[in-house]
């Protein structure tokens, strides 16, 4: 379990409506600091700049999907050890298991409850080694 409490979250998501709901949920309910990135192609730079505690990735995005972005993060020294949580409406159990094997910290399925989202993230955060 990490020493400090979960505070800084970077969320990569192309859907602006969901961006807004997640921001509200994490900021208002979870009292966290949130950076939202709409374009996955610039995400790595933005993540490096923001230095989040945890990164949330949408699964299906135009330009680059979540799993590909995650692999890129693993190849990047500054981001490779960051915990990553996938938010998905689609993935099969096998794909989710594969991501877990690669090292993803957890998955949250859509639709999620914005009331419970901060708690869900904290539970994942506390389960980290």
């Amino acid at each position: 379990m990490p020493a400090q409490a979960l505070n800084r979250i970077c969320y990569v998501e192309d859907d602006e409506d969901i961006q807004r709901i997640v921001r509200m949920s994490l900021e208002r309910v979870g009292k966290m600091t949130v950076e939202v990135v709409g374009d996955p192609l610039v995400a790595i730079d933005r993540i490096i700049a923001f230095k989040p505690d945890l990164v949330m990735l949408d699964w299906m995005m135009p330009g680059m999907d979540g799993p590909t972005l995650y692999r890129k993060m693993l190849e990047t020294p500054e981001t490779k050890s960051m915990p990553v949580v996938f938010i998905t409406a689609k993935a099969s159990q096998r794909e989710l298991d594969e991501l877990r094997k690669l090292g993803a910290a957890g998955t949250i399925s859509k639709p999620f409850s914005p009331k419970d989202l901060p708690e869900q993230l904290r539970a994942i955060w506390q389960a980290l080694p």
Binding site: I21, S25, F112
Partner: peptide, 21 residues
């Protein structure tokens, strides 16, 4: 996928409103 994504927005927004935060 296409149904869940808008539903995420709809239910999520309503939940935030109804929860009173």
């Amino acid at each position: 996928h296409e149904l869940r994504t808008p539903l995420t927005s709809i239910i999520g927004s309503l939940q935030l409103i109804n929860s009173g935060v």
